[in-house]
């Protein structure tokens, strides 16, 4: 067992050469390749993690968007339903209002027609009744009736109360020079004297008393001075009666009468 010193030195050199060559051709390249691969894999994993995180974030974002869309869709549907309901109510209200308006118009038209009918009826019946009464009164008129008319007039003058007498005197003293006595028939001398006698206490001497026949007065007599009129006439009665008749006819239609009730 010996050591060959040449081989010994040669082996050390061989080892150093081998180490140098392996370092250059093997370790450096293999280690570099492994490091690069490791870095690449690490980068890939990082990328994957990043992408995963991005995907998760995106997923969350899209879920949020989806929820938003669903919520909005629901809101829109609800709104549409509300709008449709409101539109329905509005259309129903319009239809009801139009129906009510046309019913109202129909009712008013009915009322107007009834008014017109009653008016015409009133006028015709009034004209007929009073035409008939006037005819009767005209047919009955004679001297005796005229005397009674004058008698009634004289009684009325005599029955004037204090205030009316004052008014009559004042109207006659107010400078009027003419007093007109109108009658529906021609007064005879005697009848004129009775009238003059009755109103004499209120007359001034300078006042002129005129008599006039006026068919419009009817079976009656009236005294007119400035601002004062005293009369008695069947026409007045008839006019009052006619007026009363008209009022009575109107009252025949109750004030609270609602044509709608009849419609219904």
């Amino acid at each position: 067992m010996h050591i060959d010193w040449f081989v010994f030195a040669a082996q050390i050199i061989n080892f150093l050469i081998l180490a140098a060559l392996l370092k250059y051709f093997l370790y450096d390249r293999i280690v570099k390749a492994m490091d690069e691969r490791q870095a690449r894999i690490a980068k890939s994993l990082d990328d994957a993690d990043r992408l995963k995180a991005q995907a998760k974030a995106r997923e969350a974002e899209l879920e949020e968007v989806d929820r938003d869309i669903q919520r909005k869709a629901e809101e829109i549907l609800n709104q549409a339903a509300k709008d449709a309901q409101a539109e329905r109510q509005r259309l129903l209200a319009d239809v009801r209002r139009e129906a009510e308006e046309s019913r109202q118009r129909w009712r008013e038209s009915l009322l107007r027609e009834r008014e017109v009918f009653f008016e015409e009826l009133r006028q015709r019946s009034g004209a007929f009744i009073f035409g008939t009464i006037r005819q009767i009164v005209g047919d009955l008129a004679d001297e005796e009736l005229e005397d009674r008319v004058i008698g009634v007039f004289i009684r009325r003058v005599a029955a004037l109360d204090e205030d009316q007498q004052d008014m009559l005197r004042r109207s006659m003293d107010s400078g009027s020079t003419e007093i007109l006595v109108r009658s529906g028939f021609e007064l005879g001398e005697d009848q004129r004297n009775r009238v003059v006698k009755a109103i004499e206490p209120y007359l001034s001497p300078e006042v002129e008393l005129n008599f006039e026949v006026a068919p419009s007065v009817g079976s009656g007599i009236e005294l007119m001075s400035r601002g004062y009129k005293l009369s008695w006439s069947m026409g007045d009665y008839l006019a009052g009666l006619e007026e009363e008749f008209r009022r009575a006819l109107k009252e025949e239609i109750p004030s609270g009468y609602d044509a709608g009730e009849t419609v219904q």
Partner: peptide, 27 residues
């Protein structure tokens, strides 16, 4: 001793050359 040492060195270096030259960082 030297001859077989060179043989081993030759095998190792040849292997290193063959593999190391084509060493890649691919997967």
């Amino acid at each position: 001793t030297l001859v077989y040492t060179w043989l081993i060195m030759g095998i190792l270096i040849a292997l290193a050359l063959l593999v190391g030259r084509k060493a890649t960082s691919d997967v």
